[in-house]
Design a protein around this nucleic acid. Structure first.
Lengths: 202, 202, 202, 202
DNA sequence: GATGAATGAGAATTCATTCAT
DNA sequence: TATGAATGAATTCTCATTCAT
């Protein structure tokens, strides 16, 4: 008798979780090119063959990780701001939750942030990374750009700057925090004050 | 008739310039792993064999580019602040010059900044990038960290935050600007106001 | 209530039939190397794991298919000539039946012919196909060679040509017909005249 | 001083010749899937890396071999029939030259014929061979089909059969001969009589 | 009897590096 | 000084095969 569908699902989900966690860690820290599948497999505790059981190829794993794991993680756990309030309050809430998550003992969130922002900020494409950057992922950027433009329309945010510029600034500050968190670890991480960012945009 | 020593020197320098400019462009935009020597040679208009005349290997070229080209470029043209004044004025001057250079038509400076900051911010090492991260490059970080600590000692900069954290923030904001400049091109680039940064640290 | 032995036997036979039919189709059309077990399983509507219940390995399935399925099919349904008559009449009868079967709506026969003849005609061995060519299969060739030599002894067949050569010619013409049948389908297939072949050998 | 363009050309051509000859031998005898690049490299006396210096990938080498080597070889050396004469004389001449070439000590021609005809006769595509059969190569078939149709129009060739069928028959007979030649070697090869084929079509 | 999760040997492919000229 | 032919280690990817259930 084969394993039941239920049993398989459990096995499957556990393995995929491990693979995705390993991938998240490595891609976030080292980037796409510098990460090898053997390395992912080793960290995930499986053979490289299994990676191909679940994902068509390296890029597919990466793509899935970004869109189905990192982005939802960041969006649902971190960017769950109330969309009905004013942009300045949204931004304040977002940063409060963001900082709270960075202070968490769970590294996942800061890896996800680092990974997503890296994807957003890749600039030109070429020989090797071409497959990666072909389908440009602007989700984070669009998300914040919407808030910034809303804030500018509401008269709260500075309009002397291009909204895209302001958005990039916000994203880089977040990446800066996530980087510090990743480098220092959660123990040494001193939470910055949200007013730093708020002062900048207002 | 063979070339004179003088002629050879000129040719040599021109070649090296082209190679370094191509390397700067590619390493800054695509990163170390994603950049191939064939690509550099193609952009530089020479054969890949020639790269080995001037540099021992890929990493050597990269290392030289960072330390002998990108860093001096950034330091001398951009970070030429008067070291005798107070930290807050140094920082202000640095950002003023930085923004002025980003507005320049010459892409070199923003490539150099992007490259240097990428190097600073690489986190873990492993299989592929091992050679690159072996000799960690902290010049930019140390440079700004010195200013920040000076500013904190002088009582002008916020001491509620770890100096390293504040330094990382500054660096990320710079990278954010350099990224926007790289992405939009100099024509569309709107210079941000220096007060954004100053407000943050003070 | 568990299945009875009888029920199991029926299920088993049905499964095996499907697996063999799928294998016949794929091996005949694509060859040994280009056919994957996953593909066979998919066409057969079962898991690849099941293939290993019935056959030790890929080659074993292939071997069984050739010797227990394709060859008997071809021999019993197609090459059922009366062995007591003269070679020229045997050959004529064989071709008549062969052509009749090719005109049938059932693709099985032409697949079997194509498969068997491909096996016969594989030439050198090496890295990948090594397992396949290890045990050379000459059944069809031997079968026809016997008839040709008999015909030459009886004085009906041309003796100006090596019997092996003549045999190969006959086999290739058969493969040619089977190919046309496979390509055009049974609807468009126009039955060639047996005299074409007979004229050649006599 | 680098090698002169002329020197490079010579080196290049010699290596490419060796690679193509090795490829021709192996692809013709074992087929695309069963032939590995390491094997080709070994037979050609070079590293597999060099294959990628001259060809983008395995398929590209195969494609080039078929279109730029095997087909021209067969066409120019073997199928160089006078196009102004009647089809029946063209066919006769073609077979005379074909048989003459098969009797030659040089294996190249019979490999080329075997390779080309294999390509022509591949039937369905699927998972693995898909890249190979995507761009179906019908050159030989079209070539002979033209002659057959011409012969039918001129009233010399049998019109009771579909021209495509007759064409396939001719090609298979040729493949049969080429096979015999490949298997027996030129020493043992007994040239068949052209009338065998002529009788068939007339 | 049956499934599909899991493995790893082996094949394809990339690219830094060497070297003859 | 300069080229590009040539190599091979490292990586991606495929797929036959095993095995727990």
């Amino acid at each position: 008798m084969p394993r039941t569908i239920e049993q398989n699902k459990i096995i499957r989900n556990e393995r995929i979780s491990k693979i995705l966690l390993a991938s998240l860690y490595l891609f976030a820290n080292k980037g796409y090119d510098a990460t090898t599948l053997d390395e992912i497999a080793k960290v995930a505790g499986c053979s490289h063959g299994l990676l191909y059981h679940y994902y068509k190829d390296k890029y597919n794993l990466y793509y899935h990780l970004i869109n189905e794991v990192a982005f939802p993680l960041v969006k649902e756990r971190i960017f769950s701001a109330d969309l009905n309030q004013k942009a300045k309050y949204m931004l304040r809430d977002i940063f409060n939750v963001f900082i709270k998550e960075l202070k968490s003992t769970d590294d996942k969130y800061c890896w996800a942030v680092n990974l997503l922002i890296s994807v957003e900020l890749s600039v030109v494409e070429g020989t090797k990374s071409v497959r990666v950057s072909k389908e440009k992922n602007d989700k984070i950027f669009q998300w914040f750009n919407g808030i910034v433009e809303k804030g500018q329309q509401e008269g709260d945010f500075s309009t002397s700057k291009d909204s895209r510029e302001l958005t990039a600034m916000i994203i880089y500050i977040m990446k800066g925090m996530a980087y510090i968190r990743m480098k220092l670890g959660y123990k040494k991480f001193i939470s910055p004050n949200v007013s730093i960012i708020m002062d900048m945009v207002l």
